[in-house]
Nucleic acid binder design. Structure first.
Lengths: 213, 213
DNA sequence: GCCACAATCACATAAAGGTGTGAAGGGTGC
DNA sequence: GCACCCTTCACACCTTTATGTGATTGTGGC
């Protein structure tokens, strides 16, 4: 094989940091470039060590791993980053993914798997704790819907809005719902008032942006 | 713990099927309900065994695993399905995910990990081969864009369409692009012709559906 | 040079959409 | 009962869009 994989580790817990560092350093094919308790000197450390893989704890004093991640990916896009955290809440996970994380491990991951994960990301895989993977899949199946419309718009108003979002004209909507076109106008007026828009296009765009596709 | 996890296995390769079946059957906490080389009797087998987890090969003679998956999920939504395949092409992966697969393992997965995967899905996780996970993450970061518009619509026509998609009126678009409103009309006419629509709304919806958001 | 096409503009007409105003019946809640 | 909202409808007036027809200029290919 070519050169060994250079790893940089950020982890504020000293025992954990030294433990992982020792393990990585002792693994053939891996090269432990450095291990730090915070990311305050991130840029200079990245420049100095040019790591292939960064193991990044999310919760650290000072700048968090989530803030550090986009910096790493913007400066060195090819660097693979594995996030580590005790929390598996959706928000952090998706923020990390959007920022370009290549792996996401919970802190209960056994050390041997961490080592495996480093190799995995370097080979182009994305090691993930299975519970994290599940959340990612669920996001696919049910893109998050913020439903303020449910109580903001009445059921009839939602019917009309759905009609608009299908590209229907007032007349078509009226026919489909078996009401007069003037009634459709009235409902649309109310929808516009509530969504604070004043054209069909704006209403549709807003409805889509808010997620109720 | 409560009752053991009931597993149903579909795999056309006899050696593989019997090997995995033996392993599952020999694992404490797992109950091997049945192992079949095809899904032609899927419904009756599901009804007979009521499995917690289904291990489903994609490439089988007759009905494929991808076709069987939606049937399983529609009949027994709570049943967890792990897909197994030798191919990791994007199309199959995303079709499986959309159909509700909870796990996705490549065929080179060691048997011990298959067993682990069964427990994982039953616990609510989503075991995935890391290369599959990578594709899923990439899909997140760069939602696929089909850009037929690039050559279908001229640059100016795309400018106008973008204006529409921002909710602008003809007049606003004209001002922004420093052209007359009649020119905007002309371009929009051409856009409608090319997209085969006949209203602003339809054009916007089509543009969004095609991905050029 | 000719052709196709992109980009610009103009004038005109009909259809669709947006807004003001008003009103009647049904339902919920206090 | 009364206030408030939802749903339904009507008429009027104006703006925005959609479409028909036609024209000029410039660019790139053959």
């Amino acid at each position: 094989m070519e050169h060994s994989v250079k790893v940089l580790l950020y982890e504020d817990n000293r025992d954990l940091r030294e433990g992982i560092a020792y393990l990585l350093q002792a693994t053939p094919g891996l090269q432990m470039a450095g291990a730090f308790p915070h990311v305050n000197n991130l840029k200079s450390e990245l420049h100095a060590y040019m790591p292939d893989v960064v193991l990044l704890d999310i919760n650290m004093p000072g700048m968090s791993g989530l803030e550090a991640l986009p910096i790493i990916k913007s400066l060195y896009p090819k660097t693979q980053v594995i996030m580590q955290t005790v929390f598996d809440d959706d928000e952090r996970i998706f923020q990390a993914i959007r920022s370009g994380a290549s792996g996401y491990l919970l802190k209960n991951t056994p050390p041997a798997e961490i080592v495996q994960a480093v190799f995995d990301v370097h080979r182009g895989g994305s090691p993930m704790t299975t519970s994290v993977a599940r959340k990612v899949l669920q996001y696919f199946q049910h893109p998050p819907k913020t439903h303020p419309a449910d109580h903001l718009l009445s059921t009839r108003e939602q019917d009309i809005l759905k009609g608009l979002m299908k590209g229907y004209s007032y007349k078509l909507i009226a026919d489909e719902l078996h009401i007069s076109i003037d009634t459709v106008r009235t409902h649309i007026r109310h929808v516009y008032d509530k969504l604070q828009v004043n054209s069909k296009t704006e209403a549709i765009l807003k409805a889509m942006k808010e997620g109720w596709v």
